[in-house]
Design a protein around this nucleic acid. Structure first.
Lengths: 347, 347
DNA sequence: TAGAATCAATTTATCGATTTACCAATAAAA
DNA sequence: TTTTATTGGTAAATCGATAAATTGATTCTA
């Protein structure tokens, strides 16, 4: 007894009226089209009764709007992106939009392919944490007047809305903080990457060291999904630089990997070595003693991103300039009695 | 110079042939429809040249297939679900399917709404970690012959494919393990939930205690997105049960929350209290000393789930019976020299 | 009183594909 | 010679919605 799905034509036939009338009523254009109250009610009642729902594919084909937002993150399994995905989902959902997501793995070719797939599915808007190498593809989207918001990183040469954090200032402040505490041999262990946010983090570190005439110790690790392949190079680096007294990790992933190495090598934090990591994570809070972290305002990032996109999608708002938002990170001091401080206040 | 997207009609016109012919050629039905080699080549060449891609909305409307899979998890920000989402995405992607996801928050009403939304978007298949209360909605999907695979939990009364893990055996073995070590006052702190997997975890704990004539200490915490609201009840429970010598946590979330409380209260693990948590997490590995965990085979769960769904979607495979898979969890012994063991080997 | 405006819908076109049904010309079979 | 098959396609129907153009009846205006 499979009840075939009803179409608008079925509704119209059952009520002996035209499907257009039904369409107008269902789209709230009854008054505008001067359709009698009585008929409106009759239709609405019947529609509710039989549980009719318009086929959104057909609707999308005709209107060109899919009410779907394409979300491209580096890796949905990464807690930073997973959390952002959740907040974005909530914001979108409340406004009648759905999310179709995918992970780019920072692979430009894969990303290009995914953008193409989003395009031919006619997503209404794009939220992208873009890998290096897709500048032209983003530019293409913009040229075709499609709503795009980048986050986490951006392309300096492209005029596009984005939401990022003050990466450079954060690592600068964190490094300065370590210097003030008397640390001299401070390493920066990060992922090998040419993305703006990763470069900025590195630059902040370099800037602080230069200003203090300290030597830099930089290790760039190649990303790998398999944790063991990330542990080895970190372990090697630490073995070859036994005199380090502090480390800053460039991402949460490298930070947890680094802690595993430190843990395995029996190095004590902060007695043997001080540690600060970019991105906050339960691990940093629970590690003994807990680890100071540069916490990105995940909820704010997501809220800004989705709101900018929604306002672009809202045809009633005039097509204003692209919004470029830089949010402040929180340096969460741990392992001492200090109070957390907005980085601005530290500067 | 925005180039309007080409349609199949444009292609046909430019080549002075019928759109039907173009369609046949593009869908690989040229031979079947006896279209000349020469024309096939001419069309394919031209299509590639102008970069024409069929509008997948129109295609979906006509064929009824969207090549989209709907994925409903409890919360995409939870590392367990985020990881599964990632593996499922990969499996789907390789087979030409895309994922549209949403978080149910274990809310039956929200889930019902989301199922409805997936339906009218004509997703080809459903992957759902269902909350209690949507039995009828799942049954409805099945009645309409839509491909559904549940995971993480299932409904005993409904004949539907699912992939779960041996929750009962896992907590049973974990509890037995603690008893063998000489622990007597073992608590089970879990989320308040009537889902099958949570009940099974609780049952495993109870079973082991009963067999050993030990008293049970059970605390069920109400889930809350805000961490602080989960810390309080756990802290209260621990304060009121100061003589506990071991705790088993029912999920990774409650486990990390529990560790935070333990950490804050200055309780030492395992000197003051032994800890085992369901689900593995970096936190458990890095906590000092590290925490024994019941690791669910995330990749296997995802692989089984997506494969079962894909085989349902593959019309060439006959519509076989529903597959009901129970995978084994890994008890990862930490904080001692023991080797990890498949639970089966322990039994 | 002819023409315009209003009312309350309806008819028809359209979005961009797939699919069914058909066709004209030639070759092979009966 | 008539019938049937094969070749190489095409025209039209269809999926389920929205949008534009149209309609016939009534009422208002000059």
């Amino acid at each position: 007894m499979i009840k075939k799905k009803l179409s608008i034509v079925d509704i119209a036939n059952k009520l002996n009226i035209s499907k257009t009338t039904v369409s107008f009523i269902l789209n709230g254009r009854a008054r505008e089209k001067r359709i009698s109250e009585e008929l409106v009610e009759r239709v609405l009642k019947f529609v509710k009764e039989v549980g009719y729902k318009p086929n959104s594919l057909a609707k999308s084909l005709r209107t060109g709007k899919s009410h779907i937002i394409g979300l491209m993150v580096e890796n949905i399994a990464d807690p930073f992106f997973a959390n952002i995905a959740r907040y974005i989902e909530d914001g979108a959902y409340k406004n009648g939009y759905r999310i179709i997501y995918c992970s780019t793995d920072n692979d430009a070719d894969k990303t290009r392919d995914l953008i193409g797939m989003f395009r031919d599915r006619h997503v209404d808007g794009y939220i992208i944490a873009p890998p290096v190498g897709v500048e032209e593809d983003i530019a293409e989207l913009l040229k075709d007047d499609l709503p795009v918001v980048l986050f986490d990183r951006y392309f300096p040469g492209i005029d596009c809305s984005y939401v990022v954090t003050d990466n450079l200032d954060s690592t600068y402040t964190a490094t300065e903080y370590l210097v003030e505490q008397g640390y001299k041999k401070i390493a920066f262990i990060t992922l090998e990457s040419h993305q703006t946010q990763m470069q900025a983090r590195l630059d902040g570190y370099k800037k602080a060291l230069e200003q203090n005439n300290l030597q830099s110790y930089i290790k760039e690790v190649v990303f790998n999904q398999e944790t063991k392949y990330m542990l080895e190079p970190i372990a090697d680096f630490l073995k070859n630089n036994k005199d380090l007294d502090a480390i800053i990790f460039g991402t949460n992933r490298i930070g947890t990997c680094g802690l595993k190495v430190i843990h395995n090598m029996g190095i004590r934090v902060p007695d043997d070595i001080a540690v600060i990591s970019f991105d906050d994570h339960d691990v940093f809070e629970l590690y003994s003693p807990s680890v100071t972290a540069i916490a990105q305002p995940v909820e704010e990032i997501a809220a800004n991103t989705i709101n900018i996109l929604l306002s672009k999608l809202d045809s009633s708002t005039p097509n204003t300039d692209n919004k470029k938002v830089t949010l402040q990170n929180d340096l969460i001091y741990r392992g001492s009695s200090q109070v957390n401080t907005k980085l601005s206040a530290v500067k």
